[in-house]
Write a protein that binds this DNA or RNA. Structure first.
Lengths: 329, 329
DNA sequence: ATCAACCTTGTAATCGATTACATTTACCTT
DNA sequence: AAGGTAAATGTAATCGATTACAAGGTTGAT
């Protein structure tokens, strides 16, 4: 691969002139420009990013931290990030942390080392202390999960309100015994969604019953099956379930199917996230849609602005309740 | 962020010595090593990848090209790639091409520019001519989809044999009218799987009937629904369906459910890929498992070896038929 | 005491770009 | 024709590391 020196030589000009042609900025005679472009073509020259990046001390790479690539929740967000990134001449480095602090460290170092210009973290298990340290000198944006009262800008939805809407929908359909399948409440979103659940119950003067609240360790399908199984063993069964993720809800559906119960006649189900599989189930799943593509776009825009040195503000986006067969027989 | 000069100054040594401490290679007195390490600690120094990469003309980044991040087929493969990459001190740059040639070009240029040290392509729509050009001077591995008789090393399974096994399984269950939901036969894997399907039929002296072969444009759920709907409209209905992807098969299941047919009693269904949702459906889906994690590991290992300058050979991995409820009521 | 051999450390070139500053060239004005 | 100005181009420093080679220092053998 040719370098800029060789191009300069074959064009009979200096490296500075070649660079000027490359960056289209300052004045070059049409004639010399032609000579340089000719040389570039004959040598099949592509400027080295390594040289350019070292000099400019930027890499035009954005790190995206996700706990697990197999979680369909993230795919649309990543699409959004990627589109904005590409149209701003950035690329994204997708990093799966597996919620593993060692990997997290590797990725944080990549930002410190300028292998990447900034980070969007979507990992709810991220080490907030380290992230805050990183944010002191580098560009960081949180997406979906965030820190209340923290100083790092974030993009999210109003989780409390979204849960409230979902549960209110169930209650208004006449369900007076609504169970909650929640994830571990060490996560902020889990606590917020529980609050929304409780607010809806309280508003309709329904009791909050601990045995109808099940906390899962993870968000997998199997956890949903397990949770539903437990709820069905209760003497006093719920007649509706709000699960804080579609994968949990789909697990619940599966268990209901197995035990011969009808959805929504016997038990209505609402999920959260509107993952693509949520309308492939039978019945299709009522769910709360987060504007995932938009979240991704917004997060990327914030990050790029922050890298440019601008001050950016956190943003809360709108959610939407998608009513499907699992609540509307 | 401190640089190597400052570390050298505070440690009272030359930059060469600092570099030697950093790279643990040549001889440094324990005493000077201590001084340098002390300086590194006090200055909170991290070596710049940009400088290092320029000098070594490597980036320790591997490009992974996939058509779409939302396709669950790729997630396990990517896991495998990532694990091997990390344990060899590489990182992966996950690139979604959307089967868009412009994006493809951007990514190919990243390799030419040394932003990445090599590519694993999993995009069946990739421009083979350009990829071959790239492979002349750079490291390239194909994963899953490949070019027959081409010169780029690949990792794949025996698609013909896998399809043959799937269809033979259906026939041996007593199904004598097996339909095929195939994707566009411009793809090599689609042609190979069709061959396997036909071989199994021929072996059992069953006719190959064109009206039982449906080609979809894409692999989405909706295409499966559509395909099944068409097959059900036939006067002479099939009593089994082999779909070349789980998403198609899940669409077919959904349509069968909608029209009140029982699976597998009325129509048995086999999918392909063993995506995680394939055991969340009702009934659970019989499918052909590709060793996806292993494919990822193998592809990454091949690529890293190729980058090291070794000659690498293509590898064909074993598949496995996973029998579940959709063929075994 | 001398010298070879080896070990440790330093000097400076290098990777491939960008860019401040210097220099050359061309043109215009009087 | 001389001098001034602006445009075009060149020179060389710079980004932050690695490393070939040079130089200095120590050790031990004779």
């Amino acid at each position: 691969m040719a370098n800029i020196q060789q191009v300069a030589k074959t064009a009979g000009v200096s490296v500075a002139t070649v660079s000027r042609v490359l960056n289209k900025a300052s004045s070059v005679t049409p004639e010399t420009r032609m000579k340089v472009e000719q040389a570039i073509k004959t040598l099949n020259y592509e400027p080295s990013m390594l040289g350019r990046n070292l000099r400019n001390s930027e890499s035009r790479l954005l790190l995206v931290l996700i706990p697990s690539i197999s979680n369909p929740f993230y795919t649309e967000i990543i699409n959004g990030i990627q589109n904005i990134a590409i149209s701003n001449h950035y690329n994204i480095l997708l990093c799966e942390t597996d919620s593993n602090p060692d990997r997290e460290n590797i990725y944080f170092n990549m930002v410190k080392n300028k292998v990447a210009d900034g980070v969007i973290s979507m990992d709810p298990t991220v080490n907030m202390q380290k992230l805050n340290e990183l944010a002191e000198n580098h560009s960081v944006i949180l997406c979906s999960e965030y820190e209340e009262g923290g100083s790092i800008p974030y993009v999210t939805i109003d989780n409390e309100l979204a849960a409230y809407h979902a549960v209110k929908h169930l209650i208004q359909l006449g369900m007076n015994q609504v169970a909650l399948i929640n994830s571990d409440e060490k996560y902020l979103y889990a606590r917020q969604r529980r609050n929304g659940y409780e607010r809806a119950l309280s508003e309709f003067h329904l009791p909050i019953r601990e045995e109808w609240i099940y906390n899962t360790e993870q968000l997998d399908f199997q956890n949903g099956v397990q949770a539903m199984r437990r709820l069905l063993q209760l003497k006093d069964r719920p007649n509706a379930v709000f699960a804080v993720s579609d994968t949990l809800a789909i697990g619940a559906l599966k268990e209901l199917n197995t035990s011969g119960l009808l959805v929504p006649e016997d038990i209505a189900v609402v999920g959260f996230d509107k993952i693509s599989f949520s309308n492939m189930t039978n019945p299709t799943l009522t769910t709360v849609a987060q504007p995932m593509y938009q979240m991704g776009c917004t997060a990327a825009t914030l990050l790029i602005n922050q890298i440019k040195g601008n001050n950016v503000e956190s943003i809360i986006l709108e959610h939407e309740l998608i009513i499907r067969e699992s609540t509307m027989g």
